[in-house]
């Protein structure tokens, strides 16, 4: 599957709590090229995760539009968004969110239940995904038998097994030590450079941010500034 570009235009997101309006994103516009690795940074409450969720179709903007590839998300129903997510988006969470009673291979296989394919093809895809993340020898281990870094690798394998256009990572190294974080970030770099995935990663960690091609800083729901990473020039999308 080819990478998809992401265009967010004048996105507003307002939450309501106890009849009080809480604006989280305030007319934010952002363009991410297909195959680009963009890092979202900003203080807590700046709207990073909200933007990530909107781009992933987990939530709808109060106003504005979001286009991912050829799909205008604001025009899609919840059912359509769910189906779209399963085919075009891979999520990586800070806390991994693996199913504790399933093995690594079964966790990775889970999203493939949404696809019509033979069990042989599923097994092959799972094996490939686990090989990419370096866990080919841990297929039968359950999450509680894996280290935090290994769990996150399984979560990454689960995110890429459906071959999505976009990978959305919400603080994927937030719960890991420095060494393991580097390994996970190297893996994301690999997915970006070798597999040409568009990656949008939220992080607080400047070292993690240095792995992106571009760092976007949010402040109070608006785009404060952008920085290009000269060490990692953007590649042309395939």
């Amino acid at each position: 599957m080819s990478a998809a570009d992401i265009v967010a235009t004048s996105v507003r997101k307002v939450y309501h709590k106890d009849r009080i309006e809480i604006p989280v994103l305030d007319g934010l516009s952002l363009k991410i090229d297909a195959g680009e690795f963009v890092v979202l940074m900003g203080p807590s409450g700046s709207g990073k995760s909200t933007l990530l969720h909107l781009i992933g179709g987990l939530d709808s903007p109060t106003s504005g539009s979001i286009r991912v590839g050829e799909y205008n998300l604001e025009r899609m129903t919840e059912r359509e968004l769910t189906a779209w997510r399963s085919r075009h988006v891979g999520f990586i969470f800070q806390m991994y969110h693996l199913v504790p009673v399933l093995t690594a291979a079964q966790n990775v296989e889970l999203p493939l239940l949404l696809f019509k394919m033979s069990s042989a093809e599923r097994r092959e895809r799972v094996a490939t995904a686990l090989k990419v993340v370096g866990l080919a020898d841990r297929t039968d281990h359950r999450p509680n038998q894996l280290s935090g870094g290994q769990e996150q690798r399984v979560a990454i394998a689960r995110a890429i097994v459906t071959d999505p256009d976009v990978i959305l990572a919400d603080e994927p190294t937030g719960d890991l030590d420095a060494k393991t974080s580097e390994e996970i970030l190297a893996l994301l770099n690999l997915l970006n450079s070798e597999f040409n995935k568009t990656i949008l990663m939220v992080t607080h960690d400047p070292r993690a941010a240095s792995h992106g091609q571009r760092v976007v800083h949010l402040e109070k729901g608006v785009l404060e500034r952008e920085e290009r990473n000269p060490a990692r020039p953007a590649m042309a999308a395939s």
């Binding site: 059912r79 769910t82 997510r85 399963s86 988006v89 999520f91 969110h97 889970l110 999203p111």
Partner: peptide
């Protein structure tokens, strides 16, 4: 409920 939320995020419908 976190598991169900994750399943939904992965693309499993309600």
């Amino acid at each position: 409920f976190n598991e169900y939320a994750t399943l939904k995020a992965l693309g499993f419908g309600g």
